[in-house]
């Protein structure tokens, strides 16, 4: 039996790696990957705590919901990224600094 805290340590590390990607990357797709890391860290926590809820199954259910929501978010975000590329010819978040001109 793996202790609960080890799951939490892994998810904390994964969350910080995602945070680093979001803060430093100069490409919108890599920023999106960082956000996915953070979401996955949260899902790992849900699942790790869900082990202690044999009758309710709440942790696993909400892990599933979180995965589906993340997938929906990625679909919309990638469509937006493609539009940004069409407009600015780059997807560097530093250079895309104007609203509709």
């Amino acid at each position: 039996m793996i202790p609960l805290s080890h799951f939490l340590f892994i998810s904390a590390c994964l969350f910080c790696i995602g945070l680093y990607a979001v803060l430093t990357k100069r490409n919108a797709i890599q920023v999106l990957i960082g956000i996915e890391f953070m979401i996955n860290a949260a899902v790992l926590n849900f699942v790790a705590f869900g082990r202690f809820d044999a009758n309710g199954g709440g942790g696993q259910m909400f892990a599933l919901f979180a995965i589906v929501l993340a997938a929906a978010g990625v679909a919309v975000a990638l469509a937006i990224i493609l539009n940004v590329y069409k407009h600015f010819k780059t997807i560097d978040p530093v250079k895309t600094d104007t609203l509709k001109d």
């Binding site: 994964l14 790992l44 699942v47 869900g50 696993q60």
Partner: peptide
């Protein structure tokens, strides 16, 4: 990461 979920008995996830 999916392999880690299996260790928390969340095979469907």
């Amino acid at each position: 990461l999916a392999a880690l979920y299996v260790f928390a008995f969340a095979d469907f996830v």
